[in-house]
Every structure is written in structure tokens, then in C-alpha cells.
């Protein structure tokens, strides 16, 4: 039956591109039928896919919802050929839960308070604190931490998600400890790091981020950090 449908209009279309191809999946047919056709399509060129140079594969599912199990299954089918690498699986559809989780991750929550010794502020998403974090106080966010005030305590960005792209920004940066994702930086190391930047005493917002090359947390003036690193994507998430 599947062959008869595919003869009229293909359920899986392969589009070539520079370093690989895109698999465009039909939106309307049943999932098992689709999977069967995908296997069939890939098996035609199995020799090339097993032994050839690496090929990057992008999957476009259109308006079909793919559950996590379906995604795993698709990846497994494609990976069964050694040269094929799954770059991305794209779908226009997400469940309400997934959407809400994403919404939470991207939200910016503003809080006006002094986080004092022994207090802990935990925010899902990004946090804008209007106030200080005192020594012994802790601020955590799954996303970025922005502080309009002095950071003297512990700040943790990318908490839980191990997001090493998250940043901590503060008007005055004097932390006891900084954490970004799973990376930890203590004050002495931070102090050393900062001296390499010119004149850290001026009144400018400083940003702490994880430097992929140096493999450590680095503090810089916001202007300089933006030169080295595209922070705009991080900040854009909130708009």
C-alpha cells in the first residue's frame, strides 16, 4: 500500500544542499508509513551512506508533531548509516507543555529586593534584580542574571540546564563566587582575570561569561565582552 501512495506523491523528499541533504517529511500520512518509506529511501544509496564522506542531514517535519520517541527513532534510523549525521530535526508543532517550558526559559522576571546573607533567589528563566546581592546571599537563574546593583554574593547563571552560554551581568561586580552552567569560578581567579582588562574601577556594567577557548569564567566590561562574543543573541531572547 505504501508503495502505491508514494508513486503518486513521495512522503519523503530528499533535497540536496552544500554539505548534505534535507529530508522533507509529508505532514499528513501515518507515522509508521512515513518511517517505512524513510528506511526504503535511505537504503537505495546505502553503500554511499555507509562508506562515503560525512553527510549532514536536516529533517523538516513541517506541521507534523514529533514526540521525543519519534525523534529518537528517526535519529536512530538515519544514524544506522555511518556517514550520516543528524544536524537538526525541525517541526512547526510543539505541545502545550513544551511551549510553556520554553516560555518559562525565555521569560525575564524582575525582582526588586536586596538578597541578604542566607537568602536565596531562584528564578526559572532570566532574572533582572533591582538591588544588591550581599555576601552570603545567592541568586540563581536557569538563564541569564542581570543585576542593577552590586553583586557581592554568589550568582549562578544557566542553573540546572548546564547552559554555559548564560551570562551574569552586574553594575558593580564583586562576587564571592560565580557559576555559569557547571563551571565554577572563585573570587581570586576572577580578580586575576579582571586585571587583564584595563581599569576595572570605572563605572561600567561588567559581564561574566564562560570563555570556550580559555575554558574558564571571564569578567569583562560589557563593551569589550560584546566585541569578543555575540551577546546579542543572549539578550535578544528576552525581547
Amino acid at each position: 500500500m505504501s508503495t502505491s501512495i508514494s508513486s503518486t506523491s513521495p512522503l519523503v523528499t530528499m533535497k540536496g544542499r552544500k554539505n548534505g541533504f534535507i529530508l522533507v517529511l509529508d505532514e499528513n500520512c501515518a507515522y509508521p508509513v512515513l518511517l517505512a518509506e524513510l528506511k526504503e529511501k535511505l537504503s537505495v544509496n546505502h553503500q554511499l551512506y555507509q562508506e562515503g564522506p560525512p553527510i549532514s542531514v536536516k529533517v523538516e517535519a513541517g506541521n507534523r508533531y514529533l514526540s521525543p520517541e519519534h525523534r529518537d527513532e528517526l535519529i536512530a534510523v538515519i544514524r544506522s548509516y555511518k556517514s550520516l549525521e543528524v544536524e537538526q530535526i525541525e517541526s512547526n508543532v510543539m505541545t502545550r507543555d513544551e511551549f510553556e517550558n520554553q516560555e518559562k526559559k525565555e521569560q525575564l522576571i524582575s525582582v526588586a529586593q536586596i538578597v541578604r546573607s542566607g537568602q536565596e533567589l531562584m528564578i526559572e528563566g532570566n532574572v533582572l534584580l533591582i538591588g544588591d546581592v550581599n555576601p552570603g546571599g545567592t541568586i540563581r537563574a536557569t538563564g541569564n542574571v542581570y543585576i542593577l546593583g552590586t553583586l557581592r554574593g554568589l550568582a549562578c547563571a544557566g542553573f540546572g540546564d548546564n547552559d554555559s552560554k548564560a551570562v551574569v551581568a552586574a553594575s558593580i561586580m564583586k562576587p564571592t563566587q560565580l557559576r555559569i552552567g557547571s563551571h565554577v569560578s572563585k573570587l581570586d581567579a576572577v580578580g586575576e582575570q579582571r586585571q587583564q582588562e584595563e581599569g576595572s574601577d570605572s563605572h561600567t556594567i561588567e559581564v561574566a561569561y564562560f570563555d570556550q577557548e580559555q575554558k574558564k569564567i571571564v569578567i569583562g566590561k560589557i563593551q569589550n565582552v560584546m566585541k569578543h562574543r555575540d551577546l546579542s543573541t543572549d539578550f535578544k531572547r528576552n525581547s
Partner: peptide, 12 residues
Amino acid sequence: VRDADRVIGILE
């Protein structure tokens, strides 16, 4: 000062 800060947090 650290302990005072903690106490102020509780009092608030």
C-alpha cells in the same frame, strides 16, 4: 556585619 545582614533579611 554578615550576621546583621542575615538578621535584617529575617526581620524584613
